[in-house]
């Protein structure tokens, strides 16, 4: 009997939450931003981008050296 009570309670909570979701509230990742975890993603992406940029800059420099060598010949 106890388990049935729990299940009905759970069902009730789910139905209430789904009703509130339908009533015009659009779910956004506000919680994610509030808890601050989105900064982790931003930091990771920034590092990935900066890493790729440094790599491209190194290729750029190596190419400049090569151009110098060829043009001096």
């Amino acid at each position: 009997m106890k388990s049935i009570k729990y299940i009905t309670a759970l069902l009730f909570i789910f139905s209430v939450s789904s009703i509130s979701a339908q009533s015009g509230e659009i779910e956004m990742a506000d919680v994610m931003r509030e808890s601050g975890k989105i900064y982790v993603v931003v930091a990771v992406l920034s590092i990935v981008f900066v890493g790729l940029v440094i790599y491209a800059a190194m290729i750029d420099r190596r190419l400049s050296k090569l151009e110098k060598e060829v043009n001096e010949k």
Partner: peptide
């Protein structure tokens, strides 16, 4: 990358974040 994730965007159905 930084502001693209952090600014407020309009809350729209289907699209969300």
């Amino acid at each position: 990358i930084i502001n693209g994730f952090l600014i407020e965007v309009p809350a729209l159905p289907i699209l969300h974040e």
